[in-house]
Write a protein that binds this DNA or RNA. Structure first.
Length: 259
DNA sequence: ATGGTTGTTTAACAA
């Protein structure tokens, strides 16, 4: 089972690029972030024509996540538990019925800038809720993963210029601590766990020729439960599509599971 | 170097 995560930065602007990538990469499941669309406006037909079921959790203008799947989906839930007042669309999960059932969670973790401020506070409280969901996932002992745009640069080697990120919400000590708390519950970073994966980034800013200079960061991650990590076959980053016409500023990250 | 770019929505805001 091939599962990919891709922050598309707006479905309206990205539909042709998304369709081209789906036809080439042929993921069984694609977890999308920043669809920037309400559910009713999401262009599902052209994606369905490629054989995908489309499940969205959108909102007007910002955020928004979706699951595309060529395998049947069950038990779809929307929204990260733990705060009934949170109206931001950043979490969707479903069980993918392959040879094995795989619980997939698609997430768009808050950016958190500027620091300090309410956006950074929201990021940290959201990560605290994420930790609770992560603990429950481990308890279930399912083949499960949480993948998406974490807006976290885990370590210095995950960015071209660490100095430039000091103080940023993607690199703050508080952000690293919250991320490690989740990882250290027992999750595996799929990219770090495979030797065949190329050392590359997953995001290059649109500004200042970041792509041309390879001034990137690795912020899109697959975190696997032990049951999923046991079945991890491969992981990769489709970095070449960043150089195409009208690209997203993120590129897809995929894993292959024996499931 | 306090710039630079893109998307959504139409003057900012978010990233």
């Amino acid at each position: 089972m091939k599962i990919a995560t891709f922050n598309i930065n707006g479905i309206k602007a990205r539909l042709p690029a998304l369709l081209t990538w789906l036809e080439e990469a042929k993921p069984d499941v694609a977890l999308l972030q920043e669809i920037k669309s309400v559910d009713e406006a999401f262009p599902r037909e052209q994606i369905e024509d490629l054989g995908y079921t489309v499940e969205t959790h959108g909102q007007k203008g910002f955020n928004g996540v979706a699951i595309l799947s060529r395998l049947p989906l069950e038990d779809i839930t929307r929204g990260l538990p733990g705060d009934e007042t949170d109206e931001q669309a950043r979490w969707i999960e479903a069980t993918v019925m392959g040879d094995q059932a795989v619980r997939v969670c698609g997430l768009y973790l808050p950016n958190g800038n500027p620091v300090p401020g309410p956006k950074f506070d929201y990021k940290l409280s959201w990560m605290n809720r994420l930790k609770k969901r992560a603990q429950d996932l481990l308890k279930s002992e399912e083949i499960a993963l949480m993948a998406g745009d974490y807006n976290i640069i885990p370590q210095a080697e995950d960015c071209a210029n660490p100095k430039a990120w000091e103080g940023d919400a993607l690199y703050r000590p508080e952000s690293h601590a919250a991320y490690r708390e989740i990882l250290n519950l027992g999750f595996t970073d799929a990219l770090r766990a495979t030797t065949s994966a190329p050392e590359t980034y997953t995001f290059w800013d649109y500004q200042a020729g970041a792509w041309e200079k390879n001034n990137g960061i690795r912020i899109d991650h697959h975190l696997l439960t032990p049951q999923a990590a046991d079945r991890l076959m491969d992981c990769g980053i489709d970095s070449e599509i960043r150089g195409r016409e009208k690209p997203s500023d993120h590129v897809p990250v995929w894993i292959e599971l024996d499931a």
